[in-house]
Design a protein around this nucleic acid. Sequence first.
DNA 1: TATGAATGAGGATTCATTCAT
DNA 2: CATGAATGAATCCTCATTCAT
Lengths: 210, 210, 210, 210
Amino acid sequence: MIIIYQIFYSLDREKQERIINAALKEFAQNGYEKASTNVIIKEAEIAKGSLFKYFNSKKELYLFLFDYVNGVINKIYDEIDWNETDLFERMKQIGLIKLRIYKQYPKAFDFLKSVPNENSPEVKSKIDAIKKELIENGLGMGYKNINLSKFRDDMDTKKIMNIITWTIMSFSEQQIKKVSSFENVDIELFYEWDEYFDILKRCFYKKEEQ
Amino acid sequence: MIIIYQIFYSLDREKQERIINAALKEFAQNGYEKASTNVIIKEAEIAKGSLFKYFNSKKELYLFLFDYVNGVINKIYDEIDWNETDLFERMKQIGLIKLRIYKQYPKAFDFLKSVPNENSPEVKSKIDAIKKELIENGLGMGYKNINLSKFRDDMDTKKIMNIITWTIMSFSEQQIKKVSSFENVDIELFYEWDEYFDILKRCFYKKEEQ
Amino acid sequence: MIIIYQIFYSLDREKQERIINAALKEFAQNGYEKASTNVIIKEAEIAKGSLFKYFNSKKELYLFLFDYVNGVINKIYDEIDWNETDLFERMKQIGLIKLRIYKQYPKAFDFLKSVPNENSPEVKSKIDAIKKELIENGLGMGYKNINLSKFRDDMDTKKIMNIITWTIMSFSEQQIKKVSSFENVDIELFYEWDEYFDILKRCFYKKEEQ
Amino acid sequence: MIIIYQIFYSLDREKQERIINAALKEFAQNGYEKASTNVIIKEAEIAKGSLFKYFNSKKELYLFLFDYVNGVINKIYDEIDWNETDLFERMKQIGLIKLRIYKQYPKAFDFLKSVPNENSPEVKSKIDAIKKELIENGLGMGYKNINLSKFRDDMDTKKIMNIITWTIMSFSEQQIKKVSSFENVDIELFYEWDEYFDILKRCFYKKEEQ
DNA sequence: TATGAATGAGGATTCATTCAT
DNA sequence: CATGAATGAATCCTCATTCAT
């Protein structure tokens, strides 16, 4: 069932953004349950009834935001150069694209960061379903068209890929925790990546490939 | 500020356990916000007022439980054989000890598992602070007295350790998600670990050490 | 205070009917309080603002409908043969006329049936007042030009008339409750009436009149 | 399913009465839907939460009141002298008993009067079910042990009884409408009854019985 | 005159915390 | 110290009415 929030989309863009940002912020800070629609309407400077005219319920508002940030995320994949077959070049690329989009939609990423923490049964089943799909389409896509023949033959490639993925994700997470909000993320972060990439290449690429 | 819950500790041990277990269960199942003090007092068979006499507020109760499970976790470090200097043997040991303690305090671990999902601003700042300390003291301690000379000299040892740590933690997390509750965790899980350890050793130990 | 809904009456007849029927249906089904102006405007295919332009408020719309159905009811009196002076023949006539008009304006009668159930203080006082007037003018009119000399002299004629009226009304009410909607009312209902009329005649008419 | 409102019943009688009377009044005046729990708690001088502690929901409160007034009504049948077999003596008796109870529980009767007007689907099914039972047990009981042989043989006794019942009920209703509230009902009302009873007896009893 | 988005008071209900017994 | 009823602020949501276009 796809719901199109036509009344909402017919608002002028500035008002839409005010509402989206107010809601992203409130949900990111407090989680679904504790987030207050009162706070959202106050910050967005709209009337109580309006929010429910646009989105019917708190739950639908949350799911709408979830779709919204997915839309933002998907912009990453639109910008990837799929001709680059080297895993680490690809990852570097993705990192840079992400950074650019971070800066454009900082609240969306703060919201996204809070989604996996969501406990409320009202929305959990929905976001779990969508998350699963995202991971399959999305994360999988990050590896599309990668030249796997560069990897050592004497180790299980699946496990190597896992170690690389975990390293990249854990390092990213560590960096992200250092900044309170995505608004401040900086390109400096990427220098250290290269050093990790260098280690991983030396370990997992075939000798002659290095 | 350290608060000692004098009145609570003066209760007979069986009542203390009833309260702790009821609270651990309720918070683990529903998260801080949605957890109901009514359910807790009903399960623990105590009066409403008593709970607040013992712990002052829902928030303090939560933080008390957090300290309690930390106490449980620290038992791990009491049992480690610090004479074992090989990193991977040490890790294997820790895993086995954890498993034993899991089985003894399943509710504590279910609670601990739920903590990182906590979104509520009321407790988030507190648990983030304590978590940070835990990681520094705790995880750091896991590495105490490890023979670092086994590692390759041509790579930054700090970064190697990070890659190893992230791999172990990510793999553990992946395994944990497969089990619904710690009550059923089994030793079989550990076989796959060895395969990862083998890869990591071949990459990061000096050639002659293998 | 008499309000004439000028703007409404200047609409083309088909639109007027659409609005009246939509409103009659919604009020009859749900009562004043629960009736939704949204449902009415949707069914009548007019704009929200228009309804309030025509009738100012939900309350006035309701009272307008009340007047409208009174108009329908009054058609009954236009069709009565006032030369028929026998009470029971007159009543039979009224019943048959009612039935014909029922079938012509089913929604009006469904609405009318729902009016006595109305509890809302917003409209109750008004309809009570109008109802009283209706009973006095209307029901009274039903008795106009009746030959009262047929009734026994040894009993208070006023009381006899009351007993007859109450019997007719109570019996009617009982019959009405058996039908879900006036659309299905049938002539069969009238057979039992004759049996009651027969009893009443034998009791209250002078002996030689029978 | 029978629910016993033990917390409510453990309150002191004066508070119970304050709550019951406030709720009876609000529901009688406004009907189920429009009645405001806010008004009730204000009039009863209790806290918002308390009302819901006692009765769980507005719906349960309404149904509780319904049972309460049924209890009041049933007192009528406890006081009837079932050895009196004359229909009209019996009716006179019931009328007098009702009057006494009216004066004791005026609000209960105002509430009862409003029940048949109730449209809200939330409570309608429930009250319809109970009403049916009441009519069967209750109204039927009014006629228990009546000596039917006094009635004329040449007319259908069922129809005679209906005419008598309708007359009594309609007359009562007429009288009731004259008083704004049951608090003012007076014994004078009953004199006119005798005159109606006299007419009905002369019509419907066998000649020699008169 | 027609439109339909905007408004906000008011609705029922919850629940951590208090406090008299 | 134990009890559990009392409290009321805060929750999400509705809907008749208004008003700018």
